[in-house]
């Protein structure tokens, strides 16, 4: 009995080598390894192979990611401004200046938060609304998908930022449309009250990529659920609210986190639309743009590193908070929360 059991286990494990005729007798090392190949056992070989395959990534991870990250933390406690010989340890001075002295700092925080808090939810609502319509089994789905997605593809480019300056300029497209209704618009980009809005609209304009993800999520919702609900007499709105939304809530979470992280890091459009200044009157001085100015025009690398670390901590905290909030509204299949 015991023999039979062990021999079956052997057969299962040695499937490959038993076909080779088991010439080398009991293999070295764990029983399920094929024999031979220079005396290496399989586990050591695959570990070696693993690290060889991984070596470019390992070099990149340490050289271009992990160590620079640590370096930036260290720099944030110094007054480094380009020359190591004049670098001094200044403790938390950079952080103190940032939070209490720098006149532009809190303005940039405000602009960035407004941008994220307004444009991200609006973008996601658009994405979900259009995805819902596209999911109704309509014709020409592929064509619509392509048209709505193209802005996402181009939105980060300088060409579109340049275009935006014309669309929202004094004699731009928007004012052209408004003049039809007898409204005489000013330059939206030149006005501190509206400049940020134009950049928010640019972000909303790129709703195509979350839309594609929503569409994939909507297709996963089991049709039986809708059929059962319809039999119970649930109306269209109730079905959307009680079946569709809970079913795709993980996708909402995923999109929300991606768009939030991306929103905090918006740079190209802001830089080009405002000509690198964050104007007019600091109304589009995003956090990333201030960081860029402090580092690369004023060469205050220590200070800018401190800004970068605050950004990292805020993004991490916001991401964690959104994840944690998911406990209350994200449903993962089969009635589990």
């Amino acid at each position: 009995m015991a023999v039979t059991a062990s021999s079956t286990r052997d057969d299962a494990g040695l499937g490959p080598s038993s076909r080779q005729g088991r010439r080398s007798g009991p293999p070295p090392g764990p029983a399920d390894r094929p024999p031979g190949n220079g005396g290496w056992n399989e586990s050591a070989r695959s570990t070696l192979a693993g690290y060889l395959f991984l070596s470019p990534w390992l070099v990149g991870f340490f050289g271009v990611t992990a160590l620079p990250m640590l370096a930036s933390l260290v720099l944030s406690f110094t007054n480094f401004s380009g020359s190591f010989s004049r670098m001094e340890w200044v403790g938390v001075e950079n952080y103190r200046i940032m939070f209490t002295v720098d006149p532009a700092y809190w303005g940039s925080v405000r602009v960035t938060l407004l941008y994220v808090l307004i444009s991200v939810p609006v973008m996601l609502v658009f994405a979900l609304a259009v995805a819902t319509l596209l999911n109704k089994g309509i014709r020409a789905l592929g064509l619509y998908r392509t048209i709505f997605y193209i802005p996402s593809l181009l939105g980060g480019s300088v060409a579109i930022a340049v275009l935006w300056r014309f669309v929202w300029g004094e004699s731009g497209l928007i004012n052209g449309v408004l003049s039809v209704f007898g409204i005489d618009g000013r330059s939206w980009i030149g006005n501190p009250d509206t400049a940020l809005i134009t950049i928010m609209v640019l972000n909303v304009w790129t709703f195509g990529s979350p839309m594609i993800i929503f569409l994939a999520g909507l297709r996963q919702v089991p049709t039986e659920l809708y059929e059962a609900a319809a039999l119970d007499g649930a109306g269209r709105r109730a079905r959307y609210w009680y079946i569709t939304l809970p079913s795709i809530s993980p996708v909402v979470l995923f999109n929300g986190i991606l768009a939030t992280i991306g929103g905090f890091q918006a740079f190209t459009q802001v830089y080009v639309v405002s000509g690198g200044t964050g104007g007019p009157a600091g109304s589009t001085l995003f956090y990333t743009l201030l960081l860029y100015q402090r580092a690369f025009t004023e060469l205050r690398f220590g200070y800018a590193s401190a800004m970068a670390w605050v950004l990292l901590v805020v993004i991490a905290a916001v991401t964690a908070a959104v994840f944690a909030s998911g406990r209350f509204w994200v449903h993962y299949g089969d009635g589990e929360k």
Binding site: G63, V64, S72, L75, I261, T288, A308
Partner: peptide
């Protein structure tokens, strides 16, 4: 998930 701006300055110095 890492924001690129944290790496910007040290990478530049490197």
């Amino acid at each position: 998930m890492l924001p690129y701006h944290v790496l910007l300055i040290p990478q530049y110095l490197l």
